[in-house]
Computed example of a mutant assay.
Amino acid sequence: MASARRLVIGIGNPLRGDDGVGGLLAEQVGGRSVQQLTPELAAELAELEAVLFIDAWLAPAGAGPELIAIAPANGATGSSTESHRLEPAQLLAISQALYGRAPALHLLRVPATAFGHGTVLSPELQAALPAARALLGQWLGGHA
């Protein structure tokens, strides 16, 4: 789901089992998929009002999907060894620092258990998909 003011971005590798759930859910609502967050996304974020990132989460047993509001990280822009990979709060901080604005940002974390090679989602993740889709629908409804 993308418009001039909001965007859904799925994060993860679709060839690593459950890690591909972000892209799967984002693409189902017209959003897009990236394998990782990079500084280049900051310019695009600065033009938006709201962004939802969807990502697989190595959660404790029994955990369900979570929708979390994200605030900019205070001056954090990644370590020198991993400056090409960012967390959502770091990307938000870069957008704010470089462009003077950042969107409202939420993260939908979907519990995942299997990250091996392949495109098949684990039974545990498949069981969590209805709850994840419900949270995605809530976010979309709140940002229509």
Rank of each mutant, 00 (worst) to 15 (best):
G118N: 11
R85D: 04
R133D: 06
L140R: 13
G30F: 12
A73I: 02
L37R: 01
L37Y: 00
R133I: 09
A131P: 01
Q36A: 13
D19N: 07
T113I: 11
S79Q: 12
P60F: 12
P88I: 00
I70L: 10
Q138A: 08
A134Y: 03
P65Y: 07
A132I: 05
T81Y: 08
R85P: 00
L15G: 11
P111H: 11
E44C: 07
G142F: 00
P130R: 15
L86P: 01
V8A: 05
L125T: 03
H117N: 11
T119A: 08
A144N: 12
E87M: 10
I9S: 00
R6I: 02
L92Y: 01
Q36I: 03
G142Y: 00
L52T: 00
A97Q: 15
E40K: 09
T77Q: 14
A73P: 06
G10C: 02
A63V: 09
G75D: 15
Q35C: 11
A73R: 04
G142Q: 15
A61V: 14
Q90E: 15
R32D: 06
P65T: 06
S33I: 04
E124P: 02
R32V: 12
H84T: 08
S95M: 03
T81P: 00
L58E: 12
A93L: 05
D55N: 05
D55S: 05
A89E: 08
E40C: 03
P130T: 14
L45H: 04
M1R: 09
P111G: 09
A50H: 09
Q126G: 06
L135E: 07
P103S: 12
E87K: 14
P130W: 11
G100C: 13
P60N: 14
G75I: 11
P88L: 02
R16T: 10
S80C: 11
Q126C: 12
